[in-house]
Nucleic acid binder design. Structure first.
Lengths: 154, 154
DNA sequence: CTGTTTTTTAGAATGCTTCTAAATTAGGAT
DNA sequence: ATCCTAATTTAGAAGCATTCTAAAAAACAG
């Protein structure tokens, strides 16, 4: 895991007067030991491989800390649970395409859309905080060729 | 309520072999008797003013029918309940800006973003189904002037 | 070490949404 | 009109991600 991410988290905890614990450490290691998107439940499983004592409640209490710290992005794809994205620091502007055929989530970056969003936000009299584009789509060629991996994990 | 919307719903019900009931009728009347966004619970309250017997379960079962019919849009703003938007037919391309200061939801249309989204989707090898832009922002001038209506209903 | 405060844990609670089983109703057939 | 059968409705239970709670454990300053 990136040393700058680690440093940023340590600084954040110190600034907020939050303590370092083995559980938080395990959750952080797990959270940034992958580049995949994951759910709170996924993260619980991953963190428990590092430190058996980690509980569900602690995962749910740690996630918003990492989000507020700015190292993790929370994403709502319209399902009844949230996904978290650890690639936020390296790619802060990416957006998501969600395939309704196979549940795959494809990331993309597009500077043009970002600029447009900023313009629109200003025009409406607001200051942008966070922006997301969410495109639902179907598999196209992939689907026709029969290579669409149905129900793939997001 | 728009006659074409009514017609479209009637046709859809017939095509699907679904029956007309007083409850469904009340829900439809309520759903398109406003231009505001609403939740399932809001709709229940509105529909019950028209027909007292409408139950929560029927509202929840009717909503996806209207969404599938294409007259109502389901929207997920990252809260733990969904909003529904009855202005879909007249303004199929609008997007949303959510103010994190006051919870207000501002609609906007932007053809440029829509075109971009279609291009990106094709480039990635998909066919667009539905697209949404969601911008979280803060109140800017309004906020400075003290006119930001905190916690206003979406 | 000691004391105080934060953090953790397991399980209960919450709140939106979906499901269930029994009662009712719609609408075609007689 | 009336009957029949399948769709629909209702109230309440169940489901599920997330949050809360109270007691136990751990962090850290002095």
């Amino acid at each position: 895991m990136d040393l700058r991410t680690r440093q940023r988290i340590d600084d954040f905890l110190k600034a907020k007067g939050l303590r370092k614990t083995v559980q938080r450490d395990a959750i952080v290691q797990a959270a940034f030991g992958t580049t995949e998107h994951y759910t709170a439940e996924d993260l619980l499983v991953m963190a428990r491989k590092i430190e058996r004592s980690v509980s569900r409640a602690t995962v749910y209490r740690t996630l918003p800390i990492l989000v507020e710290c700015g190292v993790l992005r929370e994403m709502d794809f319209g399902r009844d649970f949230k996904y978290y994205d650890p690639n936020f620091v390296d790619h802060p502007h990416h957006n998501h395409l969600i395939c309704v055929d196979c549940d795959r989530i494809v990331e993309f970056e597009d500077l043009g859309i970002n600029t447009m969003e900023d313009c629109i936000t200003k025009r409406l009299g607001f200051s942008p905080r966070s922006k997301m584009v969410r495109i639902e789509a179907t598999c196209d060629e992939l689907h026709r060729l029969g290579t669409c991996r149905n129900r793939a994990k997001g």
